[in-house]
Simulated scan of single mutants.
Amino acid sequence: MTIYAEYLLLENAIINFIILYVTKRFTRTDTNKIRLIISSLIGGIYTFVVFYPSLMFMAKFIMKFIVSILMIIVAFNPYTLKKFLKLISTFYVVTFVFAGAALALFYLSDIQIFVGKGIFYIRDFPIKKLIFAVGISWILIKGTLGFIQSKIGKEKLFIPIEINLNNRNVKLNALVDTGNSLKDPISDRPVIIVEFKAIQDLLPIKVQDIFLKYKENNLDVVSTVMSKSNREISFRLIPFKSIGKDNGMLLGFKPDKVILRDEDNKILSEIIVGIYNNSLSPNHEYMALLHPEILK
């Protein structure tokens, strides 16, 4: 089979970009397309070793692994070992699943491919079939990772958070709640639902007294707090629906920032905290519910 350098570079760069993009999505890592493109090109250029017999030592496993490390660093710039290991392991899982799906599809379609010496080459590059292979791989990877995550245990869904307001802060444990789709109707910002007791010290004394007087979330609390609110903190109304309550109302406020104390220490500024004047967890494992969107 005749191998053309420009097609070899293009095909491997495209495949690398797809794998890196899927890795980005599954690890929820912030990066930009320029970094992904540069990293993809690095992987594509690496395949040129097939044209130079003197460079065939580059096709050994250790060199392939070093190149994959370089690609991860260029694409995502991981600043902790834990983050790097998460990225590199996901990168290889995605690579293996994608390669298996693509090879099976191309084999069944009787398309000529060449795999060897560290390169992947498809004759008469079938872009439609590649897209189909990507779709199958996405479903397989999502199903596999979803199954693994469901077996990990609930404790992995807990994230320590820190809420800051007016130079005061509180620390608490939060649960990632996939059922929490609550957003502020005015700003469309995601809402973190937090127990009043957990953030009591952040609130003005007059507001604390009102929440202590009314144990349930009702219109008496809403109307009284809104009338007592001042410039120190600006409250807003957040309508919600729950089992047995179609027209509920939470009081919320915009904190100065919320810090997710995980491996990334992600800082959130465009967020709303909704105050829940009751207990969220019967065994007090957590005192807040995180909107899943903020983890993306």
Rank of each mutant, 00 (worst) to 15 (best):
F211I: 02
K296F: 12
H291N: 15
V222D: 12
R231K: 14
G143D: 00
K60Y: 11
I19V: 14
Y92T: 06
A104F: 15
M58F: 14
D264K: 15
E11R: 02
T2S: 10
N167K: 15
P239G: 10
K129M: 11
N169A: 14
F57L: 04
G100P: 06
E216Q: 12
V225I: 10
V191M: 11
K257F: 10
M287S: 14
E195Q: 14
K128N: 03
A288R: 03
F96P: 09
N278K: 09
G100K: 01
G252L: 02
V176Y: 01
G153K: 08
F48Y: 09
Y46A: 13
S181T: 12
Q208G: 06
L103K: 07
Q112H: 09
L108V: 12
F240D: 14
K24Y: 05
N247T: 08
N277K: 09
S89N: 06
A198S: 15
L290R: 06
K213P: 01
L105N: 09
G153Y: 10
V115L: 14
I139K: 12
I3P: 01
L85Y: 15
M226H: 04
F106N: 04
A75F: 06
N247Q: 13
M63T: 08
S281H: 02
V50Q: 00
S279L: 03
E155Y: 12
N277H: 04
V273E: 07
I267F: 03
G44T: 02
I18M: 01
K171D: 06
W138L: 14
F147T: 10
N265P: 02
L289F: 02
L140N: 04
R236A: 03
T2C: 00
Y276L: 02
G146L: 10
L85W: 15
L10W: 12
I272E: 15
K241N: 10
I72Q: 11
T2M: 13
K296D: 08
M249A: 08
M287T: 06
I139W: 12
I186P: 00
